[in-house]
Every structure is written in C-alpha cells, then in structure tokens.
Design a protein around this nucleic acid. Structure first.
Lengths: 223, 223, 223, 223
DNA sequence: AATGAATGAGTGTTCATTCAT
DNA sequence: TATGAATGAACACTCATTCAT
C-alpha cells in the first residue's frame, strides 16, 4: 500500500505539474498576441484573462503579477526565436557559409516574428533590473553559436581580423532592422532582396580579397 | 482708434505668439528629461507640470492631451538630433569622406543623446498612426543629405553599385545600436573603438578595390 | 446483513462524529492563534487552511463560511476562558473570599489569554446579530457562579446592599482591563500589583465597615 | 504692485488652507458615522466619498490612503471626546467633587458617543504602530486633568493612599463600560442609575472613613 | 492667461466561495 | 471525505482631463 502510494505519488505530482505548465502556456499564449499588438501598457489583466478564457484570479495563481507575466512573455518570445534560429542553422562545415546561413535564418525568424521583435525592444525598457539582466543573458546565449562560427572563420583566415563583438551584433541588429524599420524597408525592397543585400553587404565587409571568389555566390547580390 | 488698434494688432499678435512658443518650449523642455528617463507611461501630467513650474491646466492650453505632448517631445527630440547631425557634417568635397564624417557625427549625437534615441524607439510604438507617419517623414527627411552623399558616391564610382536604401539605413541603424545595445557594447569596446570599427566595416563593404588605397585611413581600423 | 448493518451503524456513526469533531477542533485550533494575532480581517481562509494542514474546501465542510468560523473561534475562546475561570475558583465557604478568588482567577486567565480577550472585543462587532446574542448569553452564563457568590454575600450581609448587576460587571470589566489597557498598565504596575490593587479597591467599595477587619488581608494592598 | 501682491499672498494662502481644512472636515464628518456603524473593514472608500458628496479621487488629495483616513477619524473622535469632557468638568475647589464631576461628565460623553467609543476600541487594533502610539498619547493626555485631581485628593488626605494609575484608569474603563457592555447594562439599569451606582462604588472604594460623611451625597446611591 | 481642485472611469490585485475530481 | 484549481465581484488607488475661478 505504502509503496503503491509512493509509486503513485510521483505520477500524480507529475500530472499536476503538467497541468500547471499547460495553464501557464495557455495564459502566455493568450498574452503574447495582445502584448505584441498593443504593448503591456495598453493591455489589462482582464483582457488577457478574457483572451485566455480564464478568470483574472487564475492568472495570479501562475504569475505573481502583471510584471512577471510581461517578463515571462518577453523571455518566452526571445527563447522561441533563439530556438527557431538554432533549428534553422544548417550544419555547415564552412564557417563563413554557416554565418551566412545563420544570418538568413535570423532574418526569416524576424520576418515571421516581427511583432515579437518589436515587443522585446519595447518592453525591455519597462522591465525591472532583474528581468533586464535575464534578457541580456538570453541574448548573449542565443548568439553563442554564431559567435563560434565567426571566431572560427577569423581564426581560419576566411574572415579578416575584425572585432568579433562588433560584427556579431551588427549581424543581429541588421536582422532586427527588418522589424524595427519595416515601415521603411518594406515598401522599398522585398524581404528576399533585403536579406540578400544585407548578407552581401555584411560579408563584403569582412571576407578578405583572397576568399572573395570562393564566396562569390554570397556576394553576388551587391553586383 | 480702429486704425491704431489695427496697427497695434500685428506686433501684439507676434508678441502673443512668441510668448506662446516660449511656453510650449518650457513645457517640452521639462517633459523631455522625464520622458527620456522613465517613459511616457511612468510619467504623469502632474509631474510634468510640476517640473515645468506651471499648472496642469496650462499644459492643456498648449497641447490637446498627453498623447500630443508625448508626440511633440518625440518629434522635438528627433528634430534636435537631425539638427545636430546636419550641423556636425563638414562640407566635404569627397562624398565618401562626407559619408564617413556624417556617420561619425551621427554616432556622436547618439552617444550624447542615448536616452533620446531609446525614447524614440520606445514611444514610436505608443503613438497614433498620424504621429507615426510624422516620425517617419522626419526620419526620411533627416537622412536626405546623407542619401545625397551616398548617391553621389555611387554615381561617381567611388562606391560599389549597392542598394542605396539598404546601405543608408544600415548606417543609421548601426549608429543607433550604440544606444540600443549599449549594455552590450559599452563594457566591450570604447565609444571611439566602436565608431572606428563600424565605420571601417561599413565602408569596407561598399568601397570598391580601386579606391581602397585612397581611403586607407578610413579602413585602417579593421587591420 | 441488514441487522449487521444496523448493529454496525451506531458505532460507525459515533466514529464518524468523533472524526468530524476532531476535524472541527483541528481547524479551530489552527484559526485561533491566527485570529488572535491578526484579526479576522487580515487572515484569509487559505492561510487558516494552510495552518491547519487541510484544504480550503474542507473548511467549508465543517463551517458554512468564514463568518461562522470566526464566530466559532470567538465562542470557543470565551468558552475556554469560562472553563478556566470556573476551574480556578476554589470551593470556598465564605462568599466574599469566593468573590476575591474568582476575581483573581479571572485576572490570571485574562493575563494568559490576553490576545483572546482582545479578539472577543474586536470580533464581537463584526459578528451578525445571532452570533452576538450567543456571545452575550455565554458571557451571562459564565458569570453566573460569581453572581451567586455576590448575591449570597449581599444576602448574608457581608457585602453592602449594592446593585449586583453593576458590581458584577465591574469585576469582569476591570479584569479585562489588564488586556484592554495593557499598554498602559504593564509599564506601570506588575500583574501581581495590578490584581492586588484592583481586588482591594473593588472589595473596599462593597465590604461594610463591620466586616473590614475580617477581610483585612484582602484589603491590605490599598493602604 | 509688488507690495500689494505680497500683501495679498498671505490671505490667499490662508483662504486656501481654510478651504482645504473645510474639505478635510467634510470628508471626516461623512466618514465618522459610517465607520462608527460598520467599522473600517466594511466601509469602502466609494461609500465614504458618496456620503461626503465628493469623488473618490478627492479623498486622496486630503488623505494619503484609507489607513490615514481611519486614523484621522479615530483620533478626531478621541479628541472630540476629550474636549467634551474637559468642557464638562466644573471648576470645583474640592478635588473629590471634581473627580465625581469628571466621572459623571465622562459617562455622559460616553453615552452620547457610544458608537465612537466602540470605534476607538475596534479600530485601535487595525492601526499601524505609529497610529497606535498617537492614540495612547492622546488618551494619556486627556486624562491628565483627572489625574491631577486624584493626586491632589490623595495628597490632601481626602482619598486613601491608593495607586493613582490604577484608580484613574478604573474610572475611565468603568465609564467606557456603558458603551462596551451596553447590551448588558441598558436593559438592567437606567443611565442615571448606572452613573450614580458606579460613582458611589468607585468613591466608596477610595474615600477614607473620616471623609465619608462629608461626601455622603456622592456615596448615597449605594444605600 | 493661468490655476489647481475636482472628477470618475479604469487599474492591478485579493480572497471568500464553489465544484469537478 | 478531501482536494485545490477556478471563479469573479469587490477593493483601494491612480491619473488624464475638465472647469470654475
């Protein structure tokens, strides 16, 4: 009996945790589009509850308050994007092609999560110090694979000896600019043109003359 | 009498307008640092009135509401930055050097108005469509001189035939990234290193081999 | 079968009642210190459930709502105090000494249940009419033994012909004042001094000159 | 002009303070009966605002929050009672008659402010430490005149050498008991009987035999 | 032109109570 | 019998906006 109970306890606990996680996800899933569209300021807890199909009180069982919910949404959105990017990176041998692929993947993820990108830029200012630190760490962690590729390329002489930190964040910032300056880019260039042009521009800046022919396909889009 | 009045009316009117403008500026000047530091959400009208040394009611004589005030602050901040940049651009003959100079100027203005840059990114999402359009127009207008330089350089063959729109906003976005990613860059590179590296990177991407020796000084920082 | 069931029913019923009573007591025991310390207002049902080690829902099986629970706690506390007092009263032959003993006992119980006394004063205002009536009845009943002693003493001529009702509640009120005005008395007199002084004062007021020497020991503390 | 302005400034300020005070009083006056009847717990800010004929927001201009308002009401009620008592005390030469008069006055004030007395007992438990300290100080200050009379009587040998602190608060507690135990006393004795009996009882306890004939009128009610 | 007292709809949050399991 | 997730009305409090002076 006792053993059976003990044996049963674990699955019971697990089931509870699973249900609890499902609720959290349900609430977050409802909050994400609202916060993306209108910002944490404009969206009330009642609206989030209504969208999630739960009562206001229930949200407070899963999140200590609005701030924590907004932070969870923001972190979740960044996490998801990092996951999508890492999924999308093809396992290339050539580090330069890996960089190119990662940048393309990043841009694609940005295009498909434009509102989410804007949300992270917008809400990161409203987060408390702790949440901000979490976001920074997440950002740093999610560019790690890209950083390795850049470092490998530089070490292997396939990229000029550039300041890695600077180039790395240029890749990210430029990818983000499809969301940040969407009003500007979208009427002027197609997404594909944007990616091709940016990729060619950024790589042109760092591929040394000796390897330009090797990567001619990547640089072609600049003419 | 009537004539005297009419004669007096113009100067009177002018004086009134002048006083009115002074009031607007007084209120805006008080609002700017508050909004930069804490965001429009966190700052109340009462706080702005107190900071400006006027009553709440008076603000409503000069602005139709909080939204308009925030918009005026945002526009004002962008205007001021555009002014500072255009002031800082030396009248160079060489369009490439003009681009380099403008980028450096832009970065310096960003450094000295970091909070203002963040404010524009933050608040532009809270603005109504109309205000957003105004901001876009302003942004477009304020890069116009830079665009001319880039176009001239491309036309003169000193820059590769790149998509001008893309390169132009890369310059702006990268300059902004000193503010947007300050938490990342500032512990890793000094502002001078940042500017030199970015300038070299961006120009490397676009200066054709034929002119690389001519601009060796600008490209030096990449080794 | 039916008979066996019927035969078993009585003990089963009894066992159930016993378990049920134990539950009630368990919940009340958990609620008492919480309500004493923080008041019914500040204490939530969830907190009481947690303290009792049961679920919130279970409390509603044993009490119809918070109000009833608070009432049960209040009544319980008064009951317990009445019990302690009646226990502490030594079976004296002399009614005056019985009064003195009962007063001393009352004071001691008040000292050891100061928070409980405050609770009854505090919560009796929040109770519904019905609960209030119950409390009054309880209070009346619990002073009954004391009333008998006073009446006996008056009838026997050992106390002056005073209005019994008034004197009776003065005894109670003064005993309570150790709790009600604890902030005042405690830094000024010790508990023992308080009891001796009050006892002497109250008895002085009612013992006729003819019996003063007989009770000199009880009156000593005033002079 | 400047002088006129300066001259006008003071009255203006004074007028503002006067209006502000009137508002405070208006809100307090509305809050008192509500809090007396139903307790701070049961009374919402909206109800107080409605009763006062002002908006909720306005209350927050004059009180930092509900707690402060409740404290102000409680203090105000105690203050008013202290004022009424001190007004009612006739300037007697004889300190014993002064005590008797003060006690009678106290009882009368309690009778006419029964709910207020209950309110102070009830709410003093919900107040923060600071507010509680204020109440204690107020209570101490408001019995000061009575204390002087008691001390004078003891020093002059018209009262037995009793512990002043104890007797003083017995007077107060017994007077309060008309409110605290109103449910008990009121069906049993009239207010006048109550006062006469209590006065006689308390004075009997402390007037030495030597002066009993002198104050026979005060002691008469005990028979 | 200027004030600031006054408004009241709206906010985030709590908690007694219910009910499916 | 026992659970605790779920509810939602109610709360204290805020703040953009108005308007009598």
């Amino acid at each position: 009996m006792l053993r059976a109970d003990a044996a049963a306890a674990a699955p019971e606990e697990a089931a509870r945790t699973a249900r609890s996680d499902a609720r959290r996800r349900q609430i977050l899933a409802a909050a994400v589009p609202l916060l993306e569209r209108r910002g944490s300021q404009e969206v009330g807890m009642q609206a989030i509850a209504a969208e999630a199909g739960v009562s206001v009180g229930l949200i407070y069982r899963y999140f200590s308050g609005k701030q924590e919910l907004v932070q969870a949404v923001t972190v979740g959105v960044l996490d998801e994007m990092a996951r999508l990017v890492s999924q999308a990176i093809a396992p290339e041998v050539d580090p330069v092609r890996q960089i190119a692929g990662a940048f393309t993947a990043y841009c694609t993820v940005v295009r498909e999560n434009r509102q989410a990108v804007l949300l992270t830029y917008r809400e990161s200012n409203t987060l408390p110090a702790e949440g901000r630190a979490l976001l920074k760490e997440l950002a740093t962690r999610s560019v790690a694979p890209l950083r390795e590729a850049v470092e490998a390329a530089v070490d292997g002489g396939r990229l000029r000896p550039i300041p890695v930190d600077v180039f790395l964040y240029d890749l990210v910032t430029v990818a983000h600019s499809w969301a940040l300056k969407h009003w500007y880019f979208s009427p002027r260039v197609s997404f594909e043109e944007f990616v091709a042009a940016q990729r060619a521009l950024l790589l042109s800046a760092v591929i040394p003359p000796a390897h330009r022919t090797e990567y001619a396909d990547l640089l072609a889009d600049l003419a």
